[in-house]
Design a protein around this nucleic acid. Sequence first.
DNA 1: ACTGAGGAAATCATACATTGTTTTGATAGG
DNA 2: CCTATCAAAACAATGTATGATTTCCTCAGT
Lengths: 249, 249
Amino acid sequence: MISPGYVYGLGKILAETSEFKAQPPEGIDATGASSEGASVYQLIRDDIIEGRLAANERLVITDLARRHGTSTNPVREALQLLRGEGFVTFVPNRGARVRPIDQDFVRDIYEIGVLIEPSLTRWFVNMATVEDIAELERIQSLIEENNFTDTVRHSELDTAFHTVMYRKHYNRHAAELWWKHREVLRAVSRRFDFTLARRAAILSEHRELIAHVKAGNANEAAELIARHVEGSGRHILEHMRARNAARAG
Amino acid sequence: MISPGYVYGLGKILAETSEFKAQPPEGIDATGASSEGASVYQLIRDDIIEGRLAANERLVITDLARRHGTSTNPVREALQLLRGEGFVTFVPNRGARVRPIDQDFVRDIYEIGVLIEPSLTRWFVNMATVEDIAELERIQSLIEENNFTDTVRHSELDTAFHTVMYRKHYNRHAAELWWKHREVLRAVSRRFDFTLARRAAILSEHRELIAHVKAGNANEAAELIARHVEGSGRHILEHMRARNAARAG
DNA sequence: ACTGAGGAAATCATACATTGTTTTGATAGG
DNA sequence: CCTATCAAAACAATGTATGATTTCCTCAGT
């Protein structure tokens, strides 16, 4: 079941209340086949993204069905859907495993972001309305107000910031791609703190971006976004490396 | 079941025989859940890509099951997998429909190609071995020999040409993305002829590309690929427009 | 226009057959 | 006593079949 909130753009939600969860851009459904509130699909997917299911862990259909109180049928479908989305791998007759969200995976998707987001941004700069810009500034002020005290909230706001830019883009495919990748990166980075250097960079880059949007400097904005995404990706990777080193040592 | 041919790189296949079908880069599986030769997944997917199933056509599970001589379970799973891959859309309690492969869809994916492929190409230029280059030249000579007389064969060879460049790239995610998009574009363009202008452009661009690879001009090669992909995408779009206009008129 | 009956089809739950994989445990050989 | 081997049993994926329930659509009748 699609929750009612889904039909609203993120901006509308932000305007109504400060309590929100990051929402996908319009036209992207995040449900399973199911009609239930939280589908098996969502539950398994969250378990993977949030790391509650370990990398390469076997996904035994009957276990999952028991755990989620359903029959095997919905589980089987959920796993296929997840396979199509790349979160699960299958080996014939041996079932499904959790696709590891490792450093390579993260590198792959942020590199794709570096290639795609500048283009989305360039379009936004040329099409931004006064309201769009006001919303960016509004979100930016919330980000600065929060100032990384609540990292989950920061993550939500940061996602909202970028969603404002990409939500109206004509290339829904690219926007979807961005959103999917974003969700993965968000989940991974939720387990880390932002370094002071990264905090400063984020704030200044956002401010600079708004300035470029206001001035209509599409190319500068695109270049900046490339740096921004690159920096964000590297930051996450460094955290992962550090954690792995600590674990090994 | 994964056919034995899948484990070979395209190059090996080309070296062994001139009879071949375009193969995905290694590490990409194209099977359904099934253990059967041609899974329901493949059949439905081909029907969509090849246009045998019309845009937005309803996909009634019981019908599909009957048509393919299976029970409903495999069909449901195949549809979920296709949904995850973006070929099918679902509305809760109302089932699945064929995602229309229309002009917008084609534009969306070739634009993403324009963003991603130059980066893959840049990497290739810096990493290409003598064998890689020899293979490119070999394929190019086959392309020129064929000279668009057999358009399907041209399409296969052209895909092979690009596969040689991307198959070893470290970013498997990007390579997979390219492959998926490629398959769609290939299926769509199969129904059109190449204009003379386009034929000339393809041949000269391929030759120029090989020259850049030999010279190690990564940036020039990347720029050229951007033009190449752009041109190919526009060409397909123009054909679609023409066809739609003819149909409407 | 509104309503309500009927049907079509999705969704889910079971149960079961078949097939392939993995584990286990007994046994033979060193 | 240890190790390699192999068959049987346990396990689980995959496919089939069937029924219950729910949702949505259609269409006659008001």
